[in-house]
């Protein structure tokens, strides 16, 4: 059986900041309708990788194609079919939720923005928040509105950075159900980063682990857990975090010795 076409293809991504190389040769492919988790401990390079895939940060080396468009050059065309939300981003503080969603519906270029906004409010069960100003919302409500914004145009690729970080279990369940429904009904591919390994196991059919800017594992949650001789993704995560801490301690000792 032929594999579905890729909606995101990143090859050999490299990014170096003053503090060092944060992404080192990452290859990441997400296919149509696929739900992929991009995982790793803090500082592994997840957010930088996502921002390069979205054209917001330019890679030092490597290439990114989103929906057939090379980014960052073809960012505008590519983003017509991409949605992005991050749990850490606030909502603009002087816009009502409905106005905020309407702004993004227009930015995506939707022909029926008003109907799309009403649909999103209903789909994520946040109609009662429509007239609230961004600062009046709880972090969980803001996250829901952010995800509603990202899926207004029923994107072919939905990228979520830490989407459920601030959510109560019941809201997280609503988000997960909504996302699974979106993916199932429209073939939307999902690329999600999260520190909640249980959430990832429920949501994603494939996971890519990053450590020190490199891909260290790529497979189903079960395959990756087996690769590291762990019971689940949380075990893999803890194992990689321990490795990172050991490496850091080793570097610190070397640095102290050199002095």
């Amino acid at each position: 059986m032929t594999a579905p076409p890729p909606v995101l293809e990143a090859h050999g991504l490299v990014k170096e900041y003053r503090r060092g190389r944060v992404v080192d040769g990452v290859r990441l492919v997400v296919r149509e309708g696929e739900r992929v988790g991009l995982l790793g401990p803090n500082g592994a390079g997840k957010t930088t990788t996502l921002l390069m895939c979205l054209g917001a940060v330019e890679p030092d080396a490597g290439s990114v194609h989103v929906l057939g468009h090379r980014v960052p050059a073809g960012r505008s065309a590519a983003m017509r079919g991409v949605g992005f939300a991050a749990g850490y981003l606030p909502l603009p503080d002087r816009l009502r939720v409905r106005e905020y969603l309407r702004l993004y519906a227009d930015l995506y270029g939707l022909r029926a923005p008003r109907a799309a906004v009403e649909n999103a409010l209903e789909h994520f069960g946040i109609g009662h928040l429509a007239s609230a100003i961004g600062t009046e919302l709880s972090s969980g409500q803001r996250t829901l509105v952010g995800i509603a914004k990202a899926s207004l145009h029923t994107p072919r690729l939905l990228v979520l950075d830490e989407p459920t970080a601030a959510l109560d279990p019941d809201i997280a369940l609503r988000v997960r159900t909504g996302l699974l429904d979106l993916c199932a009904r429209h073939g939307t591919a999902l690329l999600v980063t999260s520190h909640d390994m249980v959430e990832v196991e429920r949501l994603c059919e494939r996971v890519v682990f990053l450590a020190a800017g490199r891909v260290t594992a790529d497979g189903t949650p079960e395959e990756v857990a087996r690769q590291y001789a762990q019971q689940d993704l949380e075990g893999v995560f803890l194992h990689l975090a321990e490795e990172r801490d050991r490496e850091r301690a080793g570097r610190d000792r070397e640095g102290a010795g050199a002095v």
Partner: peptide, 28 residues
């Protein structure tokens, strides 16, 4: 969660009209 999306909600404007609406949306 309800499932009431109408198919036409995904429809995008043509490039020129989309540009004009984006400009208007930023101004608003």
């Amino acid at each position: 969660m309800s499932a009431t999306e109408a198919p036409d909600l995904r429809e995008l404007r043509g490039p020129a009209a989309a540009s004009a609406h984006r400009v208007g949306a930023v101004a608003r």
